[in-house]
Write a protein that binds this DNA or RNA. Structure first.
Lengths: 327, 327
DNA sequence: CTGAAAGCGCTAACAC
DNA sequence: GTGTTAGCGCTTTCAG
């Protein structure tokens, strides 16, 4: 409401001078007296800069778009939080959006976001979102992919070592004598998940005890299905269950059959699951992804891209296996 | 990069016509032929509107600021998620920010947000943020407060029935024969928490067994302190522990002393705590706030305010007590 | 039915 | 040291 013109008039100087002062670019250009005066009247009139006008003029918005498939999910929520902190630390404002796993909804959101002329984008790309992201790149908006990536898209990505850490964890299970391992995996077709499945197949095959039906697919939020699978597994001589995602694991924990307490089953979860420690004790193993390191890396890649620099295409951040003790 | 002028030139019409067509305001104003032509060239050139320019002109950004003290917190994270969905549903873009509990940091964020000329704001106001919010109102940006409120601020708020539901839950505990109840509460001075404490005092006083030291204050994220308090309580003949916030409860669950299993203690948590059901069984009681209803109400209040309508100052959404069975 | 032109609030090049 | 001015890309009156 009160503009630079207003405060220029009030202070008896020009718009340009006001702009210089208020942007700290007064350097040796503006006299001490004038600077003081401008600053005082600005404060006095309760002036707040209009970033729209500034951005229209400069071509920079200082807006960063953060696209997550689901921020109410523990992992993505915390990730969004870290990214937002990171953005703020660097003087950017984060616009966080929930895209869901649907490419159509993703497109809709991306088009309103690009209209805002964000300076950059950090996205968890849903399956099939490649074409939309291509057009974003055409509009010269740098993208960094996180958690997964679209094959062939010219945008760097930061992921965790899905394959390696899974192999490692499974080998550890095997070496603890747990040979009957079942994997429960959400039926979404993204490389983070399929890498974990590949690791499962490879590791168990190497031991000569892989069979097709050791991997149980389930709807991402399908309570009933998870419940059924679990009940089924409890009846067999299962020694360990590997959950390919925290979301599925949580669902399982909320729907454990009563008989679970009597069973000596190790639960391995891909994703931090500290809160189940008191429940499962040393039966709980989980793979923890260093959220903050991933966020920092993603943001620094984006900064580089925004400066027009070249970066590595792939960044892998190592996860770690966390467990109470060997049993 | 490609502007309305560009597509006007390409289609051989004027900027004004392009604007009308692309905004669906062609009505009877523009001929069918021209409309088609404009739409086609726009699509062909990959045009995306520049919202900055539009907003500068119209004075509306369609941006809504969501200010949460901590989106990595379960409750606020989910709340942010719901608010964002709600905003999108109504054609707004949500800008979610983490303010922390500090009024100073809050101010810093608010000033960058107001510069973006957001159309409205939904905030969880930290203690001492009243003055900053006053200035936001002076700039004609409507505010809706959520979860708590600043006394005397001219902005509607939506909260849950902190006092009533707490009384109800505590009375229920008492009527189950649990008389030695301890409250553990984070030491932040916001009315949501102090209402819960008031309910605790009142309910226990009515039974004639309230004493000062039944309320234990602890740092919001102070692991060690919670651990100490718990250990202390286990040694006494505590029958129930009431956690004034989910955050504190979680900390407690992650730091339960080994002896807890032997104790018949009811854990009452203010906040959804489903994930501890398998651990605590019928020893778990929790108060669940209807997140989505709160989000919807807050957003509809904001919409009204943005239309310049008057609204009720206070909206109370009822929470409910959730527990397994009476023991 | 369509075009011309003003102006939203700011920055940056150029004058003085 | 300070002021003038042109435009960033759009919407919206007002003419035609």
């Amino acid at each position: 409401m009160v503009s630079m013109q207003d405060i220029a008039d009030a202070a008896g100087v020009s718009k340009a001078t006001v702009s210089l002062v208020l942007n700290g670019k007064s350097g040796k250009r503006v006299s001490e007296t004038v600077r003081k005066k401008v600053e005082d009247t600005a404060r006095g009139m309760g002036y707040r800069i209009n970033d729209l006008a500034r951005s229209l003029r400069t071509g920079r918005t200082n807006l960063i778009s953060i696209l997550m498939t689901d921020i109410s999910d523990d992992f993505f929520g915390r990730m969004a939080s870290h990214l937002q902190e990171e953005a703020m630390k660097h003087g950017f404002t984060a616009v966080i959006s929930n895209t869901g796993e649907s490419a159509v909804e993703f497109s809709a959101i991306v088009s309103v976001i690009t209209a805002k002329k964000v300076d950059g984008m950090i996205a968890v790309p849903p399956q099939g979102s490649g074409a939309e992201l291509e057009t974003v790149l055409e509009h010269k908006i740098p993208i960094v992919q996180i958690d997964r990536h679209i094959e062939g898209l010219d945008a760097p990505y930061v992921e965790t070592d899905n394959y390696d850490i899974t192999c490692m964890a499974l080998k550890e299970l095997l070496s603890c004598g747990r040979r009957k391992i079942i994997m429960i995996s959400p039926d979404i077709d993204v490389n983070a998940i399929s890498e974990r499945e590949r690791a499962f197949r490879d590791t168990l095959s190497a031991e000569g005890n892989y069979r097709e039906n050791l991997v149980r697919k389930t709807g991402l939020d399908d309570r009933k299905e998870v419940k059924t699978i679990l009940a089924d597994l409890m009846d067999q001589d299962t020694e360990a269950i590997f959950f390919a995602s925290k979301r599925t694991f949580t669902l399982a924990m909320e729907n454990l059959p009563d008989c679970w307490r009597a069973k000596d089953i190790t639960f391995l979860c891909f994703g931090e699951a500290r809160s189940y420690k008191a429940l499962l004790g040393d039966r709980l193993w989980y793979i923890e992804q260093p959220l903050e390191a991933i966020a920092r890396k993603a943001f620094s890649l984006l900064l580089s891209k925004m400066k027009g620099e070249d970066t590595d295409m792939e960044s892998v951040i190592r996860s770690s296996l966390s467990r109470q003790s060997i049993n």
